[in-house]
Design a protein around this nucleic acid. Structure first.
Length: 754
DNA sequence: CTAGGGTTAG
């Protein structure tokens, strides 16, 4: 245990460090060779103990006087004030850096020397405890204070607010009166900030009224807080009004309004204000630059981005933790991954794990999953700490490949790092396993999440809905409701599509009805399109048409499209022509419409019409590359496979499947589902389709089939093409750039709406 | 002594 005199030494070290750390004395920092990288302050204290001590000009020992005796000692007043201000600095330092234990030992020292009777010291103690999150101690001191002024109350209330105890915050605000205090501008800043995080617009407006009445509005900090509150509550007009009326705008006012515009996706205006700010003589700081960089990235304007990047370099800020990462984000957003990578390299040792995460995320978003995995590997190799964000991001890369092996490897790391109960990581893992086709793993992962939220439930429901167990998806939906979760837009989409795919017409319609009535969710385009699919798939084409005609919104192409698919499935050429006309009126370049119609004519024996549709499509230049023959091949398979699993030829298919899979993997292969899931590569799950292809369809004679670029296809078809190209050089995949998509876009290959 | 602004995830 440290003795009082030890603590005395410690105190001065902490003081000097806090002084140095506040950035006011760079020379001091350098003289002490304090590392610039940010480590916890306690670490620095210990590391530089001797150094700092040597630098101390003079030591004022911590003797056991109390302040009354000192007050009467003539001429000692100056030293007393010095002592108090030292203590306050140290406590501020502890609060700012979250050094609760250090602060506590100071508290002990203060109590011992009797300095805790001092009003300022007491307030600083409250602030220190509140900032360190130890509100119980803060309240204890608060209650012992001989006199309570506004500052003490403000310290406590900001403690409540920063700990997220908003009930307490508001309750305490109402009690200011009973302590004989009037809320001051600081109080209102804190309160307004709380309203902002809570999106409590009504309370915010009431506070606004009070602020006006108290004439605090000209206070820049109060107006800043007010405009931030409005912007967080989504009322940009009011935020802008507050900004316009501000008599003295500082850098924070400008940053707040620019940030508000950025959050509301008004990037143009954000950048305009950024220029205006500079014109008005205020230079951006690190905060402002991160927002400006983000806006630039979202605007997709490369020239502006380069200008801004140059400006940041000129200011010497390009390597800072936040600004540096913002540059990586900007280039990722612009798709300039080389520049993003360069930035990370330039940052060198200053790159934090957030910077690495940003780069990895950039790769994933630009559909470079392998590069993302490489970056992750590099991160692991460098022994950089991986956090929950790292894992969420990298799992997305695994899902997009999809690579079951990578999923398992990363899963192992996650378990080792103790992140498997984290809600975000768990959900990402769940999604990744789902994309790899392993529902069993997905379910197991779900059960490990300590606090599953709506998104976790959604993912699990979607997993079953999209992987051939719609019945389970529906029952999970019921269980989720029973547990008291409020479904979201995507919950209902997943469960409605489950109903559609399992033929639960009645149930689907009931759930659709309950959307608004029970859950208060307004159906979106995708839900309507799903309902059309539900009715159409079951053959109720007229009902589906009625549904479309009676919609409260104007039906879009995405709403019509599932009906076209249904027409084909149920061989209603007449209605198909009618529907196609509607879709083409809205989107004349939609390849799926021509393909579907053409296939339907062919199936009806109208070969001339079929050919006409093809020519029409080529005429419209919907396809830049020749490759339509592939679509024909695939749509035959689709027709066979997706609608009718009990086809009499299934035995033949499975035999063919075994042969094909042997060719690919070199291993014996059975169709037993349990053994399937143990296979290294989950793509096997999609092989049914592949087998159908090779079992039933022969490739057209002549030239190889080219699968052209930028074709929107579903994951199933993607997988299917990839494997097909492995087996025969007759199939050439020109690009790996396929995207999974949802209802509102049909798959160009199979025409389905997955 | 007390207030205001920023990056990454399902």
């Amino acid at each position: 245990m440290a003795s009082i005199s030890d603590i005395g030494l410690y105190k001065y070290k902490a003081f000097f460090l806090s002084f140095a750390w506040s950035g006011k004395d760079q020379a001091f920092l350098q003289r002490c060779s304090i590392p610039v990288t940010r480590v916890s302050s306690e670490q620095i204290l210990f590391k530089n103990e001797c150094l700092v001590f040597d630098q101390m000009p003079k030591r004022i020992g911590a003797s056991t006087y109390n302040h009354e005796t000192r007050m009467v000692e003539n001429g000692d007043l100056a030293r007393y004030v010095l002592e108090i201000s030292h203590l306050i600095s140290v406590l501020k330092f502890c609060g700012g850096e979250g050094c609760l234990e250090l602060g506590r030992s100071y508290h002990a020292l203060i109590a011992k020397t009797g300095l805790d009777g001092d009003e300022f010291v007491g307030t600083s103690l409250i602030d220190m405890y509140a900032k360190c999150g130890d509100l119980d101690s803060a309240v204890l001191i608060f209650n012992q204070m001989p006199r309570l002024d506004v500052a003490s109350c403000n310290c406590l209330i900001s403690g409540y607010a920063s700990c997220g105890l908003f009930d307490e915050t508001f309750r305490f605000f109402m009690k200011y009166d009973s302590f004989g205090n009037i809320p001051n501008p600081y109080t209102y800043s804190t309160m307004l900030a709380s309203c902002g995080t809570l999106s409590a617009i009504e309370e915010g407006k009431q506070l606004h009224a009070q602020v006006v009445k108290m004439q605090y509005l000209p206070e820049t900090a109060v107006s800043n807080a007010l405009l931030t509150m409005y912007s967080k509550c989504g009322v940009m007009e009011d935020a802008e009004t507050v900004f316009k009326c501000l008599p003295r705008r500082n850098i924070i006012s400008w940053t707040a309004i620019i940030n508000g515009l950025y959050r509301h996706e008004d990037f143009d205006k954000a950048m305009r204000l950024f220029s205006l700010m500079r014109e008005s003589g205020i230079e951006p700081n690190e905060y402002t630059f991160t927002i400006a960089l983000a806006s630039c990235g979202s605007m997709k304007n490369l020239d502006n981005s380069h200008l801004l990047h140059a400006l940041v370099i000129k200011k010497g800020m390009a390597l800072g933790e936040f600004v540096g990462t913002a540059i990586i984000d900007m280039y990722s957003e612009l798709g300039e991954m080389d520049d993003a990578e360069k930035q990370l390299k330039v940052m060198g040792i200053l790159a934090s794990k957030v910077s690495w995460n940003a780069l990895t995320k950039g790769f994933v978003q630009n559909e470079k999953a392998n590069e993302a995995l490489d970056a992750f590997g590099e991160m692991v190799r460098k022994d950089a700490a991986c956090d929950e964000f790292t894992f969420s991001i990298i799992l997305k890369a695994c899902a997009s490949l999809p690579s079951f092996t990578s999923c398992q490897q990363i899963h192992a790391r996650i378990v080792k790092a103790n992140f498997d109960s984290n809600t975000h990581v768990g959900s990402s893992l769940l999604e990744a396993y789902t994309k790899c086709g392993s529902i069993e793993d997905a379910e197991r992962v779900f059960s490990r999440i300590s606090a599953p939220d709506v998104v976790s439930w959604n993912s699990l429901i979607k997993a079953y809905s999209q992987n051939g167990n719609p019945g389970r998806a529906i029952s999970l939906f019921r269980r989720m409701i029973d547990k008291g979760f409020r479904p979201t837009v995507s919950t209902l989409l997943a469960v409605l599509s489950a109903c559609s795919h399992s033929g639960e017409i009645q149930e689907g319609q009931e759930i659709f009805q309950s959307m608004v009535r029970e859950f208060g969710i307004l159906p979106e385009e995708a839900h309507y399109s799903c309902m059309v699919d539900l009715l159409g798939r079951s053959g109720q084409l007229d009902k589906a048409l009625d549904f479309i005609n009676n919609l409260p919104v104007k039906p879009t192409a995405s709403i019509w499209k599932p009906l076209l698919a249904a027409c084909r499935c149920h061989k209603n050429l007449q209605m198909a022509e009618f529907v196609a006309k509607h879709i083409l009126a809205m989107d004349p370049n939609d390849a799926t419409v021509y393909v579907t119609l053409s296939n339907m004519y062919a199936e009806a024996g109208q070969l001339v019409n079929a050919e006409n549709q093809r020519n029409l499509m080529k005429l419209k230049e919907v396809t830049k590359e020749p490759g339509c023959s592939w679509i024909e091949v695939n749509s035959k398979i689709h027709k066979f496979f997706s609608r009718d699993r009990t086809h009499p030829e299934s035995a033949k298919i499975y035999n063919k499947l075994k042969q094909v899979m042997m060719q690919i993997t070199g291993k014996a292969y059975t169709t037993n589902a349990n053994q399937l899931q143990q296979k290294e590569d989950s793509c096997l799950f999609h092989s049914e389709k592949l087998a159908v292809c090779f079992g039933l369809i022969s490739l057209p004679a002549g030239k190889p089939v080219r699968i052209f670029k930028n074709l929107r296809v579903c994951t199933d078809c993607h997988m299917f093409m990839k494997y097909a190209s492995l087996i025969t050089d007759r199939i050439i995949v020109l690009s790996d750039n396929y995207r999974f998509h949802h209802f509102n876009k049909g798959c160009c290959s199979c025409g389905d709406y997955w």
